[in-house]
Design a protein around this nucleic acid. Sequence first.
DNA 1: TTTT
DNA 2: TTTT
Lengths: 164, 164, 164, 164
Amino acid sequence: MAKGVNKVILLGNVGKDPEMRATQGGTVVANFTLATADRQKDQTGNWVDKTEWHNLIAFGRTAEIVRDYVKKGSQLYIEGKIQTRSWDDKESGQKKYRTEIIVNDMSLLGGRAGGEGGGQYSGGRSSGGYSQGGGNYGNTTSFDQRTPQNDFANEGITDDDIPF
Amino acid sequence: MAKGVNKVILLGNVGKDPEMRATQGGTVVANFTLATADRQKDQTGNWVDKTEWHNLIAFGRTAEIVRDYVKKGSQLYIEGKIQTRSWDDKESGQKKYRTEIIVNDMSLLGGRAGGEGGGQYSGGRSSGGYSQGGGNYGNTTSFDQRTPQNDFANEGITDDDIPF
Amino acid sequence: MAKGVNKVILLGNVGKDPEMRATQGGTVVANFTLATADRQKDQTGNWVDKTEWHNLIAFGRTAEIVRDYVKKGSQLYIEGKIQTRSWDDKESGQKKYRTEIIVNDMSLLGGRAGGEGGGQYSGGRSSGGYSQGGGNYGNTTSFDQRTPQNDFANEGITDDDIPF
Amino acid sequence: MAKGVNKVILLGNVGKDPEMRATQGGTVVANFTLATADRQKDQTGNWVDKTEWHNLIAFGRTAEIVRDYVKKGSQLYIEGKIQTRSWDDKESGQKKYRTEIIVNDMSLLGGRAGGEGGGQYSGGRSSGGYSQGGGNYGNTTSFDQRTPQNDFANEGITDDDIPF
DNA sequence: TTTT
DNA sequence: TTTT
């Protein structure tokens, strides 16, 4: 089979500084949110602004770029795909779902990124460049990967969920 | 403001015959699922097929076309946007989320649509054509809209959620 | 039939201030160019930058927004479709082709647009809003529409080419 | 730099059997046309069908798949980018332009492909897989690559135009 | 002809 | 939680 298309294009602003993690296998993972502003008519026919929030996740080289250049407020263009993970919530016993956009391509736009100057990066196909070995960035960056195997424990993510 | 983009492009096959409903206001609503097949490498480097399921929702004129032409197995091209609704689950008291693709454009492809011949339709921008008045299709179609106001009660949808 | 898709997504910078014209029927028309930067490998395996130039054309309400907010240097996100027009070149007698992107949606990004402050606009579906009657903007804007019927004479465009 | 996006999505039918060629360097090249059907309003407000023809070009592994599975009538989903080449026409001395869609991704749909059964293929990112060495397909396929270096001579294409 |  |  394999004749599907699952493509997402987003342009919006980052809600918070990305959260950096790593898998057991050492793959860098970045989680962040993106707000896309929409304008639509309400029942009375008035135009109202509506913000949709998206959960984004990046892996490997793309995640490293997110770590280095993306921050709260950054304006981003994103290409990715939709993925819904599910797991059994330990507390309630209920099945839980979380829909995320896996980032494949990215362009940092000229938005007022939080701080000091803002990097400029446009991701390519990240062709073959995923650094899966994990690196020595542990103590030079802001995230703690001492126990990466537990990072997603509460929502059941494992290395099996890494899409490559 | 309002410089966001929230766009989804899907190409896949419909999982079940669409479920038809209507809002209190009489807007026709179609819910269905779409499977997009993907091929990705697993940890051992082998190519494995993976199917992603998407929840789709169409309104008004688009929903009527879904009702008339889309069935289990239909191969569809879809353009839409991502929307995540949330509500408080009455049983568990937990906050629940459901991410859906709101269908804006649609093309029926030549896939093996369930049955007798298959309609052919390519949705345009549905330009101004949403029939919000509800119609007299109640007893000529397969869905029961006697109590449309209750259709989404279990997941908290109201006319406020209709995006136009 | 009608099951086609013809969609273009561009993100880049405007090359020159837009040229404004009008058709005989009074529809405002904006022509401008957009540069999209690409990075690709050359034969020796080095990454080289390459700029692709696109001819964009907007009509009606969208053209008015281009006129009012877009200038040389503006960073734009564009959605549109590809259209190739052909005509017989009067001088050489040869068939000539010109491929253009018809702009359907547009978002002005935070790029350093030429001048004084820069407007912010994100085009919607231009839903039903094309002002086809022509207006009294003749002497309040920078373009001269006294003889609109001649504007495209050299490349054979007529009102028939306006896609709506 | 390098924050551009140049993306094309097409869904339509192939106009003729693809023409296969090869560059001096041995890269397989496929040229074909794709028709996308559109429905738009004419001046009198009637809906008229309009077909837009696109020139497509595929390289390497993607071209081989085109050669093996695509034929006149095939229904295709395409992702690619726009590229305009220019050269000086030797006869008239005029500058000539040709806009093409470079195919990056492709899905064969269930349309009535010319003949005997139709292959099924969905191109991935063709990640790193372009076979640039040329192969021994010379006498097993329908195209003659004895003098590949001359194939594009009349429109000035060289290996420099191959985008990788 | 743009942009970084 | 972003942005204008």
